[in-house]
Each structure stands twice: as structure tokens, then as C-alpha cells.
Design a protein around this nucleic acid. Structure first.
Lengths: 121, 121
DNA sequence: GCCAATATATCGTCGTGCTATACATAGGCC
DNA sequence: GGCCTATGTATAGCACGACGATATATTGGC
């Protein structure tokens, strides 16, 4: 009966401004290629954040232009893939954005708290 | 020495998707007019969220079009101002968006946690 | 009279998320 | 062989909201 799921997809505007953060954070460990990043973000978000190809690749190209990530083609895993890894600037940006996001979240919580808006639990 | 302030303004993209939530939440109490909303959001965010007039008024008009808020001109306070208050639909939307935001924040925290990204403290 | 703060409004631009589309490879199945 | 699905990368064009610039009117202080 398709119980009204608590886990609907998040609206596009919510994602805005944090997609960079998400991608940078999944790249914090080993190098990864686009398709893998897509699957990891989906998994890590419990299926609630979907990065369509038309969002993901332009985003990766932009991050590369900004020298936050570095790409290299490599078939070491048996298939030619474009691998991305964080640059030093990328790590710095990741830390900065994580901090900014934490501050922002705190900010919103205060606003909601002041309005005595408690999401139903 | 101007120590790198913790309280820089938040980037425009971060705001996106939560501006509605903010405005709805400051309207959760008494009715307010635009200029007042602007000042309250600024104050409640410790000066980190600024709602420029070019953002605020179109936003209010949009929320009004969606019947989430209701406007009425009134000079009861000595000056003609346009007062906004939440409609029933607005309250419902506020609760829903607050919930969605909380879920989303949880989502991001998990992603950052998995990447072992701890904002500097 | 002048200026700053208050108060509302709109236009045009810009950034960016996403749908649609394209194309290529790999593996399973009939 | 032929077909389908999953994998993998890429781009064009649209949708939409945030914001700077700009306009206009009122109020109060000097």
C-alpha cells in the first residue's frame, strides 16, 4: 500500500549550496569516479539524495575548473574511468564548507526554536 | 589583527531552499510587515542572514500567491504598513518544511561523519 | 531644506539543478 | 547474432529563485 514514506526525495532548492559539500566529502577518502560518487551519495543519504548525471558531471567539471579536485583517466580496475581526487585546496574547501554548514544549521535551529517550531516526531 | 571572523555571511546558495522556512518561522508568532521580518531574521541569525529587499518582497509575494501567508494594509501602529500573517496552509507548510529540513540536516551530518569530516572547533 | 532611516516594489541578471538526449562499453540471455 | 540492462561520461537548454540596482514615498532629526 505504499505507506507515505518519511523518506521522500529532498527538494532541489534544499540541495543547492550543499551539493559541492557532499561531493567533496565523499571524495575525502579514496579517489572515485563519477558513477561511483553518484551511488555513494545515494547510499549514504538512504536514497534521499539522487545526483542525476546532468547534475553530477557538470558539477565535477566545475570543481575541477576551481582546482578543488583533480581528474585522471585510468583503466587499472579493468575499465577506462575518470577518477577524481581532492587537491589540497579541495581539502581546505571541504573543511571550510563543513564548518559553514554546521554554523548555518545551528542558525536555522535557533530560528525554528525561537518560533517554537518543533517538527513532529 | 582582524581574526578571521566566525560570523561571515552565508553564501547565497546555502540560503536557497530555507528562505521560505525562515520567513514562515518568523511569522509563526504575531503578524509582521516586511521590513520588520528583515530585521528579525538578521537579528535572529546574529547578522549572518541578510534578506535584501530584492529578495524579501518577491518572496513574500510568492508565499502570498501560494496562500501560505495573507496580507493586509493597516496603519494601526501609526504608519501604513503591509502586514503578513500565516494562513492555516502556511502553518502546515512550516511544520512540513521544518521536518524536511531536520531530515536533510541529519542526512548531511551522516555524509560528513562517514567522511570523517569534523569541522574545526 | 536636507539627509538618513523606514517601507515597499520591480526588473534584469546570474548561477545552478535537472530533464532530455547522446553515445560507448560490458555482460547476460534468447 | 540480436536485444536488453547496467555502467559510464558528456552537453544543451530550461526552470527558477536570490540579489543588485533602481525607483518611490514617508518620517523624523538637524
Amino acid at each position: 500500500m505504499e505507506e507515505k514514506s518519511v523518506t521522500g526525495k529532498f527538494g532541489r532548492d534544499l540541495l543547492r549550496g550543499s551539493l559541492d559539500l557532499m561531493v567533496l566529502s565523499v571524495l575525502a577518502g579514496e579517489r572515485k569516479y563519477g558513477y561511483l560518487i553518484q551511488k555513494e551519495v545515494r547510499a549514504a543519504s538512504g536514497g534521499r539524495v539522487e545526483l542525476p548525471a546532468g547534475t553530477l558531471y557538470p558539477l565535477l567539471h566545475r570543481l575541477e575548473d576551481e582546482r578543488l579536485i583533480k581528474a585522471s583517466w585510468d583503466d587499472a580496475t579493468g575499465r577506462e574511468r575518470k577518477w577524481y581526487e581532492l587537491t589540497a585546496a579541495g581539502r581546505k574547501r571541504l573543511a571550510a564548507q563543513a564548518q559553514e554548514w554546521a554554523d548555518y544549521a545551528q542558525c536555522i535551529r535557533q530560528l525554528l526554536g525561537a518560533a517554537r517550531v518543533e517538527p513532529a516526531t
